[in-house]
Design a protein around this nucleic acid. Structure first.
Length: 471
DNA sequence: TCTGGGGTCCTAGGACCC
DNA sequence: TCTGGGGTCCTAGGACCC
């Protein structure tokens, strides 16, 4: 229901946030980890924490912390690589349960979404309800939703309900973990005022510092400062946006199905790359992955972006906009390589990324690139005809067999799902010196036992994640 | 053993056009 | 021989979010 200015009179926007999502999925899947500190993230020397379970947070471990520091703080935690297939599956179950409540679901990530209940099956009832009855109905819907999620996945979610996205998000934060908080219509200013400025989405460390230097530390300070001063401090867009939020105004609609605006892939290397050729080869590899994702999405892109993080963590990007969108691997790789030649890489490269933006909805290769390719292919055919089949370096054609590909070393990652011919389903606890330790348990049973195998034991295979609830 | 990977939005300067 | 103004595109970087 809306008042005569079109403002909601019922807190019908909800924000749902799964509690410690990645770590919670691991604990649900691995009975032996329940109630124990679990840290999910990059396990290499340069990894960071993606999610820490609440047990691990008590030791001071949190998201974005270097993994090395997390290990120091909480050496007895289980440190696991992410299993994104499992996270995606459970995310889809949760998003499905949200869509049962309304078609207006706006996912923000795998574990977070806004829902506008006005649009769904509860819309008519909410439209007729007075504010108090409407709030009661929203609370009932939200509790029912949380119960459904728990039943279907074994995972807990926190939910905030309010008249705007801003307040719903703030409410879900207050609800954590495993809670529900509703912000009454009209109480927004009272809720916001005492909060530190960092509570507002969009205010990070840099903006917080800028504001603190101006003597502004609470949301009430921001509201009192007024729009003009905030624009002065933060710039036009940010300043006006922050001021609107500080006074509790937020009319942004919940919008489902937002199209991606860019696709990118990047890798941080265990050891900095110094060699030019190696850098170019890595760019080719990244391009393959980037194009794979681009095509899977049925898109093509016009601007190619190369990202380079150097040994000293200085990060720069170089981009080139093509005449037409493409999803051609060769075109994108060539462009990215060209961009790489513009960057000073002396001292070493820590990270490389390849991305594509200015996306178009069609996949059809542009005619210019097609023509260029045809010409290139012709030229190659002619060249090889002239040299009797030798390549430019004059090496003879491959009459001798290609060097034997070394046997693919199976890498067993902590947390990974496996299946053993005799012992059944389990997961990798750790591996090293030719051995891999597996715990045999499933989401549905009691904590299981541990056994150790040779890393190349033929009875042991990687497996797909099991659903958290038997189907 | 410092600092991931995937995104979004904004700003600012220069080119270029009218 | 004094110097316009606006609009759009491209590029680079930075802040922020999960």
């Amino acid at each position: 229901m809306r008042d005569d200015r079109g403002v909601r009179t019922v807190p019908s926007i909800i924000h749902l946030d799964m509690d410690a999502f990645f770590a919670a999925v691991e604990q649900a899947a691995k009975p032996s980890l329940r109630g124990k500190p679990v840290v999910v993230g990059g396990l290499g020397g340069r990894g960071v924490v993606a999610t820490a379970s609440y047990e691990a947070r008590r030791f001071g471990v949190h998201s974005a912390m270097p993994m090395a520091q997390a290990r120091r703080l909480c050496p007895n935690a289980a440190f696991l690589a992410g299993r994104f297939a499992a996270y995606r599956e459970n995310s889809e179950i949760v998003m499905g349960l949200l869509r049962e409540r309304s078609p207006l679901v706006e996912p923000l990530s795998l574990d977070e979404a806004f829902v506008d209940l006005e649009a769904g099956p509860y819309g008519p009832a909410l439209a007729e309800a007075d504010p108090a009855a409407g709030a009661q109905l929203v609370l009932a819907v939200a509790e029912d939703l949380r119960a459904d999620i728990l039943e279907r996945t074994g995972l807990t979610a926190s939910v905030g309900a309010a008249g705007s996205k801003l307040m719903a998000k703030i409410a879900s934060e207050q609800a954590k973990p495993d809670g529900l908080v509703l912000v009454e219509i009209g109480s927004e200013r009272a809720v916001l005022s005492p909060m530190p400025v960092r509570a507002l989405p969009g205010i990070g460390p840099a903006t917080e510092q800028t504001l603190r230097r101006a003597g502004l530390t609470t949301v009430a300070d921001l509201a009192d400062a007024g729009e003009a001063e905030l624009v002065q401090l933060l710039g036009r867009a940010h300043g006006t946006g922050i001021h609107l939020m500080a006074v509790g105004h937020d009319e942004r609609p919940v919008v489902p199905d937002r199209d991606a605006k860019s696709v990118s892939v990047e890798d941080t290397f265990e050891v900095d790359l110094a060699d030019r050729d190696r850098i170019l080869r890595e760019i080719d590899q990244l391009t393959v992955r980037c194009v794979g994702r681009l095509r899977a999405a049925g898109r093509s892109g016009r601007t190619v972006v190369l990202k380079v993080r150097r040994f000293d963590f200085s990060t720069l990007t170089r981009s080139e906009t093509l005449r037409a969108p493409t999803d051609d691997e060769a075109v994108i790789a060539e462009t990215a390589r060209r961009l790489a030649l513009q960057v000073d890489t002396t001292g070493g490269v820590r990270l490389l990324g390849v991305g594509v933006s200015q996306l178009a909805d069609y996949t059809q290769e542009d005619l210019f690139a097609q023509a260029a390719h045809a010409a290139e292919a012709d030229a190659e055919t002619e060249a090889s005809a002239e040299t009797g089949g030798a390549d430019a370096a004059g090496t003879p054609p491959a009459e001798q067999p290609a060097p034997a590909v070394p046997p693919v070393l199976r890498r067993w990652l902590p947390g990974q799902d496996v299946h053993h011919a005799e012992h059944g389903p389990g997961w990798v606890q750790g591996s090293g010196v030719g051995r891999v330790t597996v715990r045999f348990e499933t989401p549905y049973g009691p904590p299981g036992r541990v056994r150790t195998f040779a890393v190349d034991d033929p009875d042991l295979e990687p497996a797909d994640p099991l659903p958290l609830r038997p189907s």
